[in-house]
Measured scan of single mutants.
Amino acid sequence: MTEYKLVVVGAGGVGKSALTIQLIQNHFVDEYDPTIEDSYRKQVVIDGETCLLDILDTAGQEEYSAMRDQYMRTGEGFLCVFAINNTKSFEDIHHYREQIKRVKDSEDVPMVLVGNKCDLPSRTVDTKQAQDLARSYGIPFIETSAKTRQGVDDAFYTLVREIRKHKEKMSKDGKKKKKKSKTKCVIM
């Protein structure tokens, strides 16, 4: 069974824990209790493949930012979460993405942009803004509501699919490099 290491990042209060708990335990946590770091595991079937999701729910508070490099190193894919009623959390996505790329030393890291709290009427981040940002990053965008469960499975499952595509691409690139290195030079 394939294991996928997913990391949920975003500013404090955007609903990272609520999304994760909704996926794992099928219930909505409405009281806000700032996370330092929590880890969850769940076995699911995605596109006919049974897999184990190892999900790291991270601290959004700035005082825990020193811990970010460590979990970013171990993560295979990242859910970059903002709240649709919090423009600052949307603007912060850029910083999370840049930090992930720096730590992973790669421009090509599996990510999904997630606009959470889409059940709320007080939207300050337009869907088109988020779609445009995701398009500019070359990553999928999904709106979710941890409260109603809308888009929750889709967000995590899409990230797994992005990781699969990335692994497939990397193995193809690896095979191309191996083929090239088999060419021999004969000096007579």
Rank of each mutant, 00 (worst) to 15 (best):
E3H: 11
Y4T: 11
K5E: 02
V7R: 12
V8E: 00
V8T: 01
V9D: 04
V9H: 01
G12P: 12
V14Q: 07
G15S: 00
G15M: 00
K16Q: 00
K16T: 14
S17F: 00
A18Y: 01
L19F: 07
T20M: 10
T20P: 15
I21E: 15
I21T: 15
Q22S: 11
L23I: 05
L23S: 14
L23F: 09
I24S: 14
I24K: 14
N26D: 10
F28D: 10
V29E: 12
D30G: 09
D30M: 05
D33A: 09
E37H: 02
D38E: 11
D38S: 08
D38T: 05
S39N: 10
Y40G: 13
Y40S: 11
Y40I: 07
K42Q: 08
V44E: 10
D47I: 01
G48S: 05
G48F: 02
D54M: 01
L56V: 14
D57K: 02
D57F: 15
T58E: 09
E62H: 09
E63M: 04
E63W: 02
A66L: 07
A66C: 07
A66G: 09
Y71D: 12
M72H: 07
G75R: 06
G75S: 11
G77K: 00
G77A: 11
L79H: 02
C80M: 13
V81L: 09
F82P: 00
F82N: 01
A83Y: 01
I84M: 15
K88G: 12
S89F: 02
S89Q: 14
I93D: 02
Q99F: 14
I100K: 00
K101L: 07
R102F: 06
R102S: 09
K104M: 10
K104D: 01
S106C: 14
V109R: 01
V109T: 02
V109N: 00
V112S: 01
G115I: 10
N116H: 15
K117C: 15
C118R: 03
D119S: 02
P121T: 12
R123C: 14
T124D: 14
T124S: 12
K128C: 12
Q129C: 05
R135Q: 12
G138N: 12
G138T: 02
G138V: 02
I139H: 06
F141T: 05
F141W: 12
S145W: 09
S145R: 03
R149S: 14
V152H: 05
V152K: 02
D154T: 12
L159C: 04
L159S: 01
R161L: 02
E162Y: 02
H166V: 06
E168L: 09
M170H: 11
S171E: 14
K172G: 15
K172A: 13
G174R: 04
K175R: 07
K178V: 08
K180I: 15
K180E: 15
K182T: 13
K184H: 13
